[in-house]
Design a protein around this nucleic acid. Structure first.
Length: 309
DNA sequence: GTACTTCAGACAGAAGCCCT
DNA sequence: AGGGCTTCTGTCTGAAGTAC
């Protein structure tokens, strides 16, 4: 891939109605974006209304939600024209990486490009360089999908600009991205709160790793006490599901970039993930020769035993 | 062979969140 | 307000096993 020169955060406003619409009919009516020049850090904006093919008046709901009026769209260019200007503004798709908050924007781009017979090669290039940053943030920090406002609030930030204005939505997505990339300790604290402590209060950072280790050992102790030498295949499947839950609770500790977690905790989580992988392999093997029970070998479970309290 | 039970996997619906 | 997505839970169904 070519050298990364710019980050593009984009967002579409779309046709919508209180009575519901098929997604394919929810044409884009406004495209907003911000571009970050990687080298200089300079941020520039893009904001254009788009005249949809369907020329019926906007629903009251849509006007109230997006703040877009019929007259805004009457004088607007159509999708191909706006998209052409967008590409020019980007200044080189191959040197860009694209982000949006939720996958609906890339799906909209694909759907409207198809509707207007735009070159699929360009859309493919963007798709290849596209990141659904809401999905990344969910996986790494918030556990469940968060709105832009909620994600900002995790970093004690508030929304700048007008909500449902796609350029400002994009700008605020950029702010979440920057916080996520730069405030590594804070990002891990959010993750730990959402994945491990949930409603409970977070201990001070200096005690955090120790407390997590304690919870981890307790979780693993309970898990281990329910392990048998052999499982019926149905129960083996349940065990896999249960292990997966435990892995999901702790696996982000291995992806931590802040250095706040101690080695013992990290290696414990590594052992759990190793066990999970071995369990999956064993399950597949037992299925392949239509076994009725699955045996857990001593060497598989032994590393877990060492971690338990 | 028939009736019944057990079980895995598919499926549907609800809930909760987001998006417009 | 509705659509989309994910997760969870309960139900259905067909296959396999068991008892008679």
């Amino acid at each position: 891939m070519a050298e990364l020169k710019q980050l593009i955060f984009f967002d579409f406003e779309m046709l919508c109605s209180k009575t519901g619409m098929l997604f394919e009919d929810m044409e884009a009516i406004r495209l907003g974006a911000v571009k970050v020049d990687v080298e200089s850090g300079l941020v520039t904006g893009f904001d254009r209304h788009i005249r949809p093919q369907q020329n019926s008046p906007l629903s009251t709901f849509c006007k109230e939600l997006t703040g877009i009026s019929d007259s805004d769209l009457e004088k607007a260019d159509d999708f191909p024209e706006v998209f052409k200007d967008f590409l020019f503004w980007i200044g080189g798709v191959k040197k860009a990486r694209f982000f949006s908050w939720s996958s609906s924007d890339i799906l909209r781009l694909k759907a409207d490009a198809l509707r207007h017979n735009l070159p699929q090669a360009t859309i493919e290039k963007i798709s290849k360089r596209y990141v659904d940053f809401q999905a990344v943030f969910t996986k790494r920090a918030s556990r469940t999908a968060a709105s832009v406002e909620k994600a900002l609030s995790f970093y004690e930030l508030s929304f700048i600009g007008k909500p449902h204005h796609p350029m400002y939505d994009s700008y605020n997505t950029l702010r979440i991205y920057e916080s996520f990339e730069e405030h590594l300790v804070k990002t891990d604290l959010i993750m730990v709160q959402q994945f491990i402590f949930q409603e409970a209060e977070l201990p001070p950072v200096e005690r955090l790793s120790q407390e997590i280790k304690y919870i981890f050992q307790k979780d693993l102790g309970e898990f281990y006490s329910n392990l048998n030498d052999a499982f019926r295949m149905k129960d083996a499947w349940k065990l896999i599901k249960k292990t997966k839950k435990l892995v999901e609770k702790y696996e982000n500790i291995l992806l931590s970039r802040s250095g706040i977690f101690d080695e013992e905790l990290i290696s414990g989580v590594e052992e759990l993930i190793n066990f999970y992988k071995e369990l999956q392999t064993a399950y597949r093997e037992h299925c392949s020769y239509t076994s009725k029970i699955m045996i857990l070998h001593e060497q598989m479970v032994e590393p877990l035993q060492k971690i338990c309290v």
